[in-house]
Design a protein around this nucleic acid. Sequence first.
RNA 1: UCCCCAGUAGCUCAGUCGGUAGAGCAGGUGGCUGUUAACCACCUUGUCCGUGGUUCGAGUCCGCGCUGGGGAGCCA
Length: 459
Amino acid sequence: MKTRIRTLLANGASGRECMVAGWVRSVRASREVAFVTLNDGSDMAGLQVVADQGLANFDSVCRLGTGAALRVHGTLVASPAAGQQWELHATIVEIIGEADDAYPLQKKRHTFEYLRTIAHLRPRTNTLGAVFRLRSRLAQAVHRFFAERDFLYAHTPIITASDCEGAGELFRVTTLDAVAPPLAAGQPDFEQDFFGQKTGLTVSGQLEGELLALAFSDIYTFGPTFRAENSNTPRHAAEFWMIEPEMAFADLADDAELAEEFIRYLCRFALEECADDMAFFDKQIEKGLLERIRQVAEADFVRMDYGDAIERLQRSGTAFSYPVEWGLDLQTEHERYLSEQVVGGPVFILNYPKEIKAFYMRQNSDGRTVAAMDLLVPKVGEIIGGSQREERLDRLTTRMAEMGISQEPLWWYLDSRRWGSCPHAGFGLGFERLVMYLTGMDNIRDVIPFPRTPRHAEF
RNA sequence: UCCCCAGUAGCUCAGUCGGUAGAGCAGGUGGCUGUUAACCACCUUGUCCGUGGUUCGAGUCCGCGCUGGGGAGCCA
């Protein structure tokens, strides 16, 4: 029976007979003894396998290449040398899958750019292994957080016909012939398409999430999201995962409170339950990472009105590249200044001018702002965007008319304001941005196993 | 999409003033009784991103293209 290396090391007992299986990271051979570092993905360190001339295939073991797959039977013993607590004295080494000298991963540091070209193999490296382990644990922690608060996990559609969420360009979903589609008035006739109308991949589950919140009170979505934007930055991907909670009978203050608890919970989770991998990130990826995350985990998040934020920026005397003026959106440089220089920690900016925000955000009584919030954190800037939603039908339709948004395709959304409408609020968090924030990784392409970005859909 | 930078051995990089390609690692062979990205000795490896131009001569200078990276915009 195979034992996972992480489990084996956690329950180490001298003299224990066991069998492990994994991939060779390194072979150090001399005439009479060879050391094989074996990794099965369960942890960072792997297991040192000691092979000696007593093995039937000792010569073959000495010639093993990095990357080969092995099954090893042996005895776990306390290691006499520094570097590891335990080691496995092999009695049988089965070579399951060879790896010759063309194997692209070497026993050395590679650039992330190079590793992206071998995305099919990079999960076997220390860094990407740690990132994808953390990603998995973190996804489970997200579900745990909401389950502890009795939120319903909602699956919103991936194929959608609502073209007007205002959250970016849609990927078109169609089965029409791309070369010669049926035409109506010179345009492709989507009435003859699979769904009988224009459809695309979802850019947000929020609108459907609101409908579910108006039945289950508290819900969240956590699923893939698609944006056909030609964004070429380290923070954007065409396919990413988004977390979107929505709470009925809740206002903007409740929304911010949930976001604060959520971020703090995930920071603590990473520090406490992923300590080995986090220590690796702190040492190898970003010096001071643990301290940064610890501060966020313990901080009280500041709340600041958009108007105050503008004043603070104007009074700062700092020369920004982009103008600072009431009515203009905050740029990345402003967001980072507020979080890093003004506050020195996470800060919510609340109540933005209605002109720069989406139609569904609740209009404040001042007539010029909406109940929107962004959570800004050091190093990244905006990590969460949310709002209280406009629950008053007349205000909502008036605003849609002002912004030129057609009501007809959103009849179902408007119905939710017709019967049993109530104040509700929610936010959106890009999962990859969260993983980047917690690992210190600088590029979104390195926190998704197989990233999709403009011109890149390989693997 | 806009601005800036880069592309040389399998990987990471150096290459001076334009004069004909070099280092570490990886790989190979041999050595080594406990190594820690093992170590020691020797050896192998090139479409200098592509294309057009300038020049007696281009890795080096110029144009165009492709690819990658950084910044911005859009945003999560």
